[in-house]
Design a protein around this nucleic acid. Structure first.
Length: 554
RNA sequence: GGGCUUGUGGCUUAGCCUGGAUAUAGCGCCGGGCUUCUAACCCGGAUGUCGAGGGUUCGAAUCCCUCCAGGCCCGCCA
């Protein structure tokens, strides 16, 4: 709908002016679209922009009127307002199930997100990765992509060697009811403490690192057990957050199947590679000062080597592959991309997000200094349950618990996704526990209100004759949903969708207060019910794309 | 030291890539609104040197340069 209207305006302006770029933007409060092309033409035509704007308006008014678009001039600005046909078209489209869903496109897309080291539970920093990655995944699905969501499990790292040492030498039993990943973190923290107190332990850790690379069965089994235990706990948290993965890819798999050695052999053949005693790629040509080390002088490989093999595999199986990574991976990520290109392989697209820190400083799993995602979810759920109990004491406890769970996940996700990813943030309990405007519960509440109206209304005949200011504003915003999805796709920045959802809820609430629905006279009632249904459907689709439950009552 | 990145009312934040009409919202503050479709709501008000300075332009929060401040990275760790 929007695309067609945009195109009609653009074509008319191009025909009238002959300009290649007719400088269209969204018009803000003034209009649905606005052009500042008159400024640009003022130089060449040696006339004032105001006169030019007037002339252009005269030329195109009639053509666009046929398309239901009103043209007007305010000083040098040419404004375009979409008419009733557009509004009706939007509401009709949004009335359909799956509004915003685009037809399937060919080519598989891999999105890798979270991929936190399995040495402890996910904390509030990790889940920024999960929420951004999962929201992008949902937007990709919504726009017709066949996607595979992956978690890369670093099961060969030093921290796993430390955990496995802790399990062998520290007698730390699991507490009653303690979640597996939290238990692993406790062992990890204790092992690190022991390591600090007695540096000779380092030798044993190094020995394990060598054994794991050689594929020593006993060591492999020890690592595997520790990693599995932690990963199972992490999966529970991911499911709670509505950020599930299609598969977990084990780092060690690329050593075992020989693909890492294969890719390292190809790297050795590169003119940019140096292999006196280590294997490294010289990336100074690509603007990097540091060489990219893949194999140590003792012959063992580093993480980057497995990463190269993993991404080569992705390139063989996916049209596009996107990694969501913390900003601390910017350098290593760029080096990976550069090396993949030198090898003639497709490079990953990388979405970076900045860090979440605590008011007292940055988080550290090793130091046990973090707020876990589980703790956050528990606290928010508790608050949500109290809220729902205050507001809806008549509901059975089971239902109140279900609402609280949906509200809590929504609140946590929205609090994260609403901020653009390039901003570093400080975790704030007050904000996390705020269920008012600019929160998912606010949007969920609008949706529940719409559902409530529709339930009370019963059957009605769809009608598209809208006229009041708040009706039109709401309908027009509904029409922007597909545009916003496209923006998120283009920029790989999901916060746009969060902002859109908040604005949509704002407009629905304004309409709700300004224009009565059920009590309106017959004809108006049908039209408003149609709008409510379209708004409810859009809110539901947006919430689902944000990974938030569109609950019907709260 | 070098690289990347952020700086918008007291706090949090959109807009910046692709320059344009009174800079987007929330929290907090002040004042109103529940006999009316769910008040997790709505309406109104106060609060801004868009980090600082220079430049480009008819026009700069937006582009360029310099500086200041915060975050991240610069390992034969992952």
């Amino acid at each position: 709908m929007y695309q067609e209207a945009y195109l009609a305006v653009e074509t008319a302006l191009k025909d009238a002016t002959g300009a290649a770029d007719v400088l269209l933007d969204d018009g803000g409060d003034h209009a649905d679209l606005a052009s500042t092309v008159a400024f640009a033409l003022a130089k060449t035509e040696k006339k004032s922009p105001v006169v030019i704007a007037g002339d252009i308006t005269k030329k195109i008014t009639e053509t666009l009127a046929a398309a239901g678009i009103t043209v007007s001039t305010t000083g040098p600005y040419i404004n375009f307002v979409f008419g009733t046909a557009y509004v009706a078209g939007v509401v009709e489209a949004a009335f359909q199930p799956d509004y915003g869903q685009l037809p399937d496109v060919s080519g598989r897309v891999c999105i890798e997100h979270t991929s936190a080291n399995p040495n402890g539970p996910l904390h509030v920093g990790h889940i920024r990765n999960s929420v951004i990655g999962d929201t992008l995944s949902r937007v990709f699905r919504k726009t017709g992509h066949n996607i595979d969501v992956q978690y890369y499990l670093n099961d060969m790292g030093r921290q796993i060697a430390i955990v496995s040492w802790g399990f062998d030498f520290l007698d730390i039993p699991q507490n009653e009811g303690e979640k597996d990943d939290h238990y692993v973190a406790r062992v990890y923290v204790a092992a690190n403490r022991a390591l600090k107190a007695d540096p000779s332990i380092k030798e044993e850790i190094d020995r394990r690192m060598g054994l794991i690379e050689q594929g020593d069965p006993e060591t492999v089994e020890k690592f595997r057990r520790a990693v599995s235990l932690c990963a199972e706990g992490i999966k529970v948290t991911l499911n709670r957050l509505n950020t599930p993965h299609d598969r977990f890819v084990w780092e060690s798999g690329f050593v075992q199947d020989g693909s890492m050695v294969k890719i390292l052999n190809r790297v050795e053949a590169l003119p940019e590679s140096s292999h006196d005693d280590i294997l490294a790629v010289d990336l100074t040509e690509c603007g990097f000062k540091k060489e990219y080390v893949l194999r140590r002088s003792d012959g063992t490989s580093v993480y980057a080597a497995r990463d190269l093999a993993y991404h080569t595999w992705k390139g063989e199986n996916f049209e596009r592959f996107i990694d969501v990574l913390g900003a601390d991976h910017k350098l290593i990520g760029a080096q990976l991309q550069a090396t993949m290109k030198l090898l003639g392989e497709k490079a990953p697209e990388i979405v970076f997000f900045e860090f979440v820190s605590l008011p007292e400083g940055s988080m550290s799993t090793r130091a046990g200094k973090f707020i876990s995602a589980d703790e956050l979810l528990d606290e928010v759920t508790k608050k949500a349950f109290d809220e729902v109990t205050t507001r809806r004491p008549e509901l059975p406890e089971e239902e109140r618990r279900a609402i609280a769970a949906s509200v809590a996940v929504g609140a946590v996700r929205y609090d994260i996704v609403r901020v653009s990813q390039e901003k570093s943030t400080v975790f704030d309990w007050r904000q996390a526990l705020d269920f008012e405007r600019q929160s998912a519960p606010y949007i969920q509440y609008s949706h529940a209100r719409a559902c409530s109206i529709l339930e009370k209304a019963g059957e009605f005949t769809p009608s598209y004759a809208l006229s009041t200011e708040s009706e039109i504003a709401l309908a027009k915003h509904i029409g922007l949903f597909p545009v916003v999805l496209q923006t998120v796709m283009d920029e790989l920045r999901p916060h746009h969708l969060a902002i859109y959802a908040r604005d949509l809820a704002d407009l629905f609430n304004a309409f709700y207060h300004a224009d009565p629905v059920l009590k309106a006279e017959a004809g108006v009632r049908d039209a408003r019910l149609t709008l409510v249904r379209a708004a409810q459907n859009t809110l539901s689709e947006v919430l689902q794309t944000l990974g938030v439950d569109a609950i019907r009552s709260m």
